[in-house]
Nucleic acid binder design. Structure first.
Length: 772
DNA sequence: GAAGTGATGTTTTTT
DNA sequence: ACATCACTTC
């Protein structure tokens, strides 16, 4: 079906080279797009142009890295061509392939309702495997193992291929993990058995599908006749292999357009390689690949662009290009020197206030960018102090909180009971008396039978009582599986949380944290409801409101993707990585110190430093008008104070672009009261300042009860309302007692435990003396 | 089986 | 500094 686009005037918004990049739609195209060169505009206009030429929207596949980028692209296409935009397949590699796999998975031995394992699930499964294989967990560090598996997958090395590669096996032997190949093999087998794919599997299995099933491959080749890839410099070998499968074959038109900038490649650590850009030119040479270089920068002022050019010139390998600004030279780049991280925070926030007033900027014009998420803390404190609204992106997201993962695990189980990680997570939550020992028996049996835990759950030889609990649990989940098929995601979630007793368990915890958890869960429920209600107005294929669909979507979500509907005027705090593709009037890049930025982990290799430099390049080119760089002479790391040199990147920018402030003076005379702190290790004002914000700590334990006069009373005499004495916790009042006989638990309020006065204590064991 | 205690490692970045 | 994990005690 074709869409009529009334006017193609929009194309005149583009400069000459942009226009050629947007309208050359037949054959392979490589667009090398410098920062701020209107890349997104070219991409969206290109799609709009295609539609105006009679190409059907459903024939277009546009691959991006974040959901946010995809959404923005769709929105912008919609503004040009209207509702047809919805039919373009635009999304992240992971989400689009997950969608395809949801249809095609049975070909490769997976159920259509497969689970997506996140990094935590992966790590937990790997730990279990390492334990079962009785391997040393220092030598088989889960993080190392996980990343090695991920890298293998991104290079298309399956366990089978891995085991046949002498160089890798040798490497493992040297690193004292000779069994790695076996761990890898087992891991993949267990994932498959659990009907689960991790992030890399979404790509690897997609490739497998195209590789091994010609008819399926044929289907998608015909369907996606035009393919666009954004941020091509951040694709890995596997992603490029999939693209090639879809577009590079006998008789193909090879209508593929990749857009990227080698200077902005910042994901080598997860297998991305700019080799793909070079390979692309080679692979499509015979088919007349056209290369367009966008070198005009529309975003930043002169000093910023020139500084970026000077900086990136220090990198070895790159595609030659010169970015030009058209905005005049603008303000110089400010450099803040601070004594400590807290002084850095204060200076940055003060400058934000000043710029806001002087230039009439909004909060949303500002971004504070840092190398590691842990650095956000100080800036948050000072922003809060100044009543400036802000939002922290990244870090521990909503979806990583324990209670959210618990709820999601229950929901996952209702869709796919074979999901091993979900099962382990909730089987004893609330407490059902299924402990470690029982689970070890279940795991051993499952392993012996080569079956998922779920299937052997009611066949394990355990005490009658435990067996009864296990089979009750299994029946409950069976009920969920049934139920979920008849109702929408929201109703399903309510039903499951209620029936499982999870809600009741949460409600019993009336501490402040407990109430917080209840709130978190209820906001998750809200978001499920929102999912059910949303876009009813579009007559889209997206009308599937099942729990399965919601889960698939949520598994690939990061908190970058959450839309905060209320109050959208806030200062943005995020890592440099997450800032890719964004722009702000005023940008602060903070923590410019050796060991931090560049990271100490990169210092060994030149490539490592080059990647850090590209990262810094990305950071500074986010700024439109104002750029401020800052570093602290000392900061707390690992609980200890560290002194770092200023980042080498600062000296790679010509000083004519720079303006040093807040500097030498404060280095000599710390501004804040020296007399308050006489300790020689404390370096002046910084520490005193910091202390102001430090949270009160140190839990004071009450004085021990004198053991010689302590006489425990028989447990069955303890009643609600009594005043009792506990050998460690001191005096308390019994608020409630629940459970029967041996299982009787008392909730007691201990007045001497200021942090968490309420404790639940098992009466059978606790030594309590009745006072009155 | 659960809760409390002490030791230990961890931090780069994200779909 | 913080969280996770093995270990002990109830």
């Amino acid at each position: 079906m074709s869409v009529s686009v009334s006017s193609t005037d929009f194309i005149n918004d583009l400069n000459e080279i942009q226009r050629r990049a947007a309208t050359t739609i037949q054959g392979p195209v490589l667009v090398v797009a410098g920062p701020g060169s209107g890349k997104t505009r070219v991409l969206t206009y290109r799609i709009a142009w295609m539609l105006s030429q009679g190409i059907a929207p459903a024939e277009i596949l546009a691959l991006t890295f974040t959901n946010k980028a995809a959404r923005e692209m769709k929105d912008r296409i919609e503004r040009v061509v209207g509702a047809a935009a919805h039919q373009v397949w635009a999304g992240t590699f992971h989400s689009l392939f997950a969608r395809i796999l949801r249809i095609e998975a049975p070909h490769i031995g997976y159920p259509t309702n497969f689970t997506i394992y996140d990094t935590d699930d992966t790590k937990s499964l790997l730990s279990a495997i390492i334990k079962e294989m009785q391997l040393n967990k220092e030598q088989y560090n889960v993080n190392v193992v996980r990343s090695r598996i991920s890298h293998a997958k991104s290079k298309l090395i399956t366990p089978k291929r891995y085991a046949a590669l002498p160089s890798l096996l040798e490497e493992d032997k040297m690193a004292k993990r000779p069994q790695f190949a076996e761990v890898y093999r087992t891991y993949m087998a267990r994932c498959k058995q659990a009907g689960a794919m991790d992030f890399d599997d979404l790509l690897l299995r997609m490739y497998e599908l195209l590789q091994s099933y010609p008819s399926v491959c044929q289907k998608y080749r015909q369907r996606f006749r035009y393919i666009l890839v954004d941020e091509f410099q951040d694709t890995n070998e596997l992603q490029y292999a999939i693209i090639r499968k879809l577009v590079h074959y006998e008789g193909s038109q090879r209508n593929v357009c990749v857009v990227g900038d080698d200077a902005q490649s910042i994901y080598a650590f997860r297998g991305a390689t700019i080799q793909n850009i070079l390979d692309f030119q080679k692979d499509f040479k015979a088919h007349g690949v056209k290369v367009f270089k966008l070198e005009q920068n529309y975003r930043s002022t002169g000093h910023i662009v020139e500084a970026a050019n000077e900086l990136i010139a220090y990198n070895k390998r790159q595609i030659p290009k010169t970015i030009r600004s058209e905005k005049g030279e603008g303000e110089r780049i400010k450099v803040i020197q601070a004594m400590s991280e807290s002084e850095e925070g204060r200076h940055v926030v003060n400058l934000i206030v000043e710029q806001k007033n002087r230039y009439h900027l909004r909060n949303s014009d500002f971004a504070i960018l840092y190398r590691t998420n842990a650095q956000s803390r100080v800036f948050e404190e000072y922003l809060r102090h100044n009543n400036i609204p802000y939002r922290v992106f990244g870090g521990t997201s909503f979806y990583q909180r324990k209670e959210i993962k618990d709820v999601i695990a229950y929901l996952r189980l209702a869709i796919n009971p074979k999901d091993e990680e979900a099962l382990r997570r909730v089987i004893n939550l609330p407490k059902r008396g299924i402990g470690q020992t029982t689970m070890e028996k279940v795991a051993a049996m499952a392993q012996a039978a080569g079956k998922p835990l779920w299937e052997v759950l009611d066949q394990v030889p355990v005490a009658a009582r435990t067996a009864q609990v296990l089979s009750a649990f299994k029946n409950m989940v069976r009920g969920f599986v049934q139920k979920v098929q008849q109702i929408d995601a929201y109703e399903a979630a309510l039903h499951i949380l209620d029936q499982s007793g999870y809600i009741r368990m949460l409600q019993q915890d009336t501490t402040r944290e407990g109430l917080g958890r209840q709130e978190t869960v209820s906001s998750l429920l809200d978001s499920i409801q929102q999912f059910v209600d949303q876009d009813q107005e579009f007559e889209q294929e997206h009308t599937d409101k099942s729990l399965a669909t919601w889960l698939q979507q949520v598994a690939l979500m990061t908190d970058l993707d959450e839309s905060s509907s209320t109050d959208d005027d806030y200062v943005t705090l995020m890592s440099v990585h997450s800032a890719k593709g964004l722009e702000f009037a005023s940008v602060f890049v903070v923590g410019l110190e050796e060991h931090l930025f560049p990271s100490y982990l990169s210092r060994e290799s030149a490539e490592g430093i080059d990647e850090e430099r590209r990262l810094f390049y990305v950071a500074i080119t986010r700024a439109e008008r104002f750029l401020t760089l800052s570093y602290a002479r000392s900061r707390y790391q690992y609980g200890k104070q560290r002194f770092n040199e200023p980042s080498r990147f600062l000296s790679e920018i010509d000083s004519r672009h720079l303006d040093l402030i807040g500097s030498a003076k404060s280095l000599v005379t710390p501004p804040v009261a020296k007399h308050l702190d006489s300790s020689p290790t404390a370096s002046g004002g910084a520490k005193v300042q910091g202390a102001f914000y430090r949270r009160p700590r140190a839990q004071v334990l009450p004085d021990r009860v004198d053991p010689s006069t302590f006489k425990p009373s028989p447990p069955d005499q303890i009643q609600v309302g009594m005043r009792v004495l506990h050998i460690k916790f001191g005096e308390g009042k019994v608020l409630a007692i629940d459970g029967q006989r041996d299982k009787r638990m008392a909730t007691i309020f201990f007045k001497d435990l200021p942090q968490v006065p309420q404790r639940r204590i098992m009466l059978k064991f606790a030594k309590l003396q009745i006072l009155s």
